[in-house]
Every structure is written in C-alpha cells, then in structure tokens.
C-alpha cells in the first residue's frame, strides 16, 4: 500500500541533483545538454523545496477503539523534574 511510491523521495531528488552537478562540472556536455540538465536539476530543487515547505508538525498517538485504529494529538509526558538550567 505505497500509494506515494511514484513520487521521488527527498534523497532521490538530492542524488539526482548531485549527479547533474557532477555532469555539468565535468564539462563534457554540449551547451544544449547542459541547459537541459540544469533545468532538470532546478526542477528537482524546487521539488525538494516544496517537500520541505509542505512539512507540518504533527505529533499523534494511535488509539484502538472497537477494533479500529484512530489517532489523536499526543501530549508529551512532563519531564520527571524541572531541573533545567538557563
């Protein structure tokens, strides 16, 4: 049930960018190819950006109710003692 398996992951995108940078740095591509690769890498960077920007803090706990699993926001247990130093 991996519905998102087609979308590249953050590290796959990073790896793609890294590879393109190396290709460009090697200087072996034609001008046209260079521009194509640059465009591709820029798109990958934008995807990375949007993955980062769309991340939202969500801390939840699973509950089992009548055989169904639900989630609700999770409150962290308090620290055992308030021995924090400033």
């Amino acid at each position: 049930m991996k519905q998102e398996s087609k979308e590249p992951t953050f590290e796959e995108l990073l790896a793609e960018i890294e590879q393109i940078v190396q290709e460009l740095e090697s200087g072996s591509l034609s001008l046209e190819e260079s521009l194509e690769r640059y465009e591709k890498a820029t798109q990958a960077l934008q995807k990375c950006r949007s993955i980062l920007d769309s991340a939202e803090k969500r801390i939840e706990i699973l509950l089992k109710e009548e055989g169904e699993t639900k989630t609700k926001p999770f409150e962290l247990p308090p620290p055992p003692e308030s021995g924090k130093k400033g």
């Binding site: 803090k57 969500r58 699973l62």
Partner: peptide, 25 residues
C-alpha cells in the same frame, strides 16, 4: 506513552526538525 523515552525521542526530533510528523504506537 508515559515513559521518559518517548519524550526524549520526540524532543530531539523537534529540536532538529521542528515540522516533523510523528505517530506514537
């Protein structure tokens, strides 16, 4: 869900990546 471990793990996650999504079982 009540031990110190769960707090330690989540505290550290949020310190590093404040917009993490975490589900505790």
């Amino acid at each position: 869900p009540t031990g110190a471990a769960v707090r330690d793990i989540i505290d550290r996650i949020l310190k590093r990546f404040p917009r993490a999504r975490v589900t505790v079982c």
